[in-house]
Design a protein around this nucleic acid. Structure first.
Length: 480
DNA sequence: TCTGGGGTCCTAGGACCC
DNA sequence: TCTGGGGTCCTAGGACCC
């Protein structure tokens, strides 16, 4: 708990949907819904125009379509979101070396750290508050300039209050919660406002007659611990009374890497289930290797037709990033799971991540790998793997939201496709709403394209974004 | 209306060791 | 022969967050 509001929480407004609107001029001011568009998709983000109709994150896409049939429905473009996120994070790092990202569109910043923090240290309470407010407003303006997007900011003496502040500031606002006013601010709000209180905990508390944060604060810590368990009860009591001393932490280690797939229709063929587990294991290892990590525990996740979900895990003697080892372990775990009735989701993960370099691992596993490859023999690409689904007819697939370009009409994006046709809106982020044309799906002139930047903004010299590709890769890991 | 995909943290029981 | 307690690791599940 600090006596000045120097913890900043930034939250981009309706991030994915806002990026799409900034990218596609024809969608500005219109309802936009980003998420999985398949039969089992859910909403990732709805624009404010769509929220008016009751659409919100985590809602089944089928439900959203009924509530808001005229919205633009788009697949997420994570590559672009990551690029925009990098720009925002760069701007945050200009405020302080202590930046803690929570996701692509959210982060804490400790304004009391670093050079600017030392400047604040010499000031009185009112001056610090005014300076923090000025910093936050300048930040919001810079983000708008660099990305064309709006962000909301909370300033407070703790993480909890800063986060609740940014929520209260939405959209496109700033809320400062003066230290000392925490309990008044929190008291009347629902327990659901508190970090870590979801549907289950809220229901638990409701049955005990507790619905507001003030009521949590009045309940003794011992009682909360009895109700919710040691860690949860204690932290809830602290938060409700405004006590929160969690520091802003810049570098957090990844603890696990996993991939999972929900299938459009349940898998009933056991061979197909085995095949999909092998594919997921490969994808998981690819991600593991991209991160330069290896892990000891392989986890298999299975969700049945009725949504019951189980995990099976096995811990190896040493960390691995070997696709063969992960695949074999996942396959072994699968053999202990009954899948009659149908499988809705499969997942493969690796936990217990180690910092072992690939070289160490290679030495450790060279023998085993060599032995396995020998056993597997050659002839790998000869026949399709057992369980592989029948090959699709080679028709080009265009996904709603996808970037394309055409030599005559220029850059654009796919609105929809079907019946051998694809509908494309030809426009660019910095232009006016463009025209819509319908082309043949097989039209060779239409090609997939990379997303265009939202603005002509370029990172300032010396920032991580502008630096040489390898600069600071290891350098800032252990910075104190 | 029928529920994504990527994570984190906590709890609890059993094995195993000292 | 009966009965300790503590610590750590592993496994499984659940709640929660974005």
């Amino acid at each position: 708990m600090r006596s000045t509001p120097t913890i900043l929480h930034l939250d981009m407004d309706a991030f994915f949907a806002a990026v799409e609107q900034a990218s596609k001029p024809s969608l500005r001011g219109k309802p936009v819904i980003v998420g999985g568009l398949g039969p089992r998709g859910v909403v990732s983000t709805a624009s404010y125009e769509a929220r008016v109709h009751g659409v919100h994150s985590a809602m089944a896409m089928a439900h959203a379509r009924r509530l808001c049939p005229n919205a633009a429905y788009l697949y997420p473009r994570f590559t672009l979101y990551r690029q925009v996120s990098d720009i925002v994070m760069t701007l945050l790092h200009e405020l302080s070396p202590l930046v803690e990202p929570l996701s692509l569109d959210e982060a804490f910043v400790d304004l009391a750290a670093g050079d600017s923090g030392r400047r604040l240290a010499g000031l009185g309470h009112r001056e610090v508050t005014a300076a923090a407010r000025g910093t936050a407003e300048a930040l919001r303006a810079r983000i708008a300039e660099a990305t064309g997007l709006t962000a909301s900011v909370g300033l407070a003496g703790s993480k909890l209050l800063a986060k609740i502040g940014s929520e209260a500031a939405k959209p496109d606002g700033l809320v400062v919660i003066e230290p000392g006013t925490e309990r008044d601010f929190l008291g009347p709000r629902s327990v659901r406002t508190l970090w870590g209180v979801g549907p289950a905990t809220a229901e638990h508390l409701r049955r005990a007659g507790i619905t507001t944060i003030a009521e949590v604060a009045e309940t003794g810590e011992a009682e909360l611990v009895r109700l919710l368990g040691k860690a949860h009860g204690a932290s809830l009591h602290a938060m409700a009374t405004g006590r929160d001393d969690r520091p802003v932490v810049a570098e957090r280690d990844v603890k696990s890497i996993s991939v999972e797939d929900t299938f459009d229709t349940d898998l009933t063929d056991r061979a197909r289930v085995r095949f999909e587990v092998a594919r997921l294991a490969d994808r998981c290892v690819r991600r593991l290797r991209e991160a330069g990590r290896s892990g000891r525990t392989v986890v298999l996740k299975v969700r049945h037709y009725d949504f019951t979900t189980l995990t099976r895990s096995e811990t190896l003697r040493a960390p691995t990033d070997d696709p063969g080892v992960v695949k074999e372990t996942a396959a072994r775990l699968l053999e202990s799971v009954v899948t009659t009735g149908g499988v809705r989701l499969l997942g493969v993960g690796v936990a217990g991540l180690a910092d072992f370099t690939q070289e160490d691992l290679f030495a450790q596993f060279a023998e085993e790998t060599a032995a396995r490859e020998e056993a597997a023999g050659d002839g790998t690409a000869a026949a399709p793997e057992p369980g592989a689904p029948p090959p699709e007819p080679a028709e080009r697939r265009w996904r709603p939201g996808q970037d394309v370009s055409h030599p005559e009409y220029g850059p654009g994006w796919v609105q929809g496709s079907g019946l051998g046709r694809v509908t494309v809106r030809f426009e660019v982020p910095t232009g006016r709403p463009g025209r819509v044309l319908t082309l043949a799906i097989e039209d060779p002139a239409l090609q997939p394209a990379e997303p265009l930047p939202l603005t002509s903004w370029t990172p300032p010299p010396g920032s991580p974004e502008a630096g040489p590709p390898e600069a600071g890769r290891d350098g800032d890991a252990g910075a104190a």
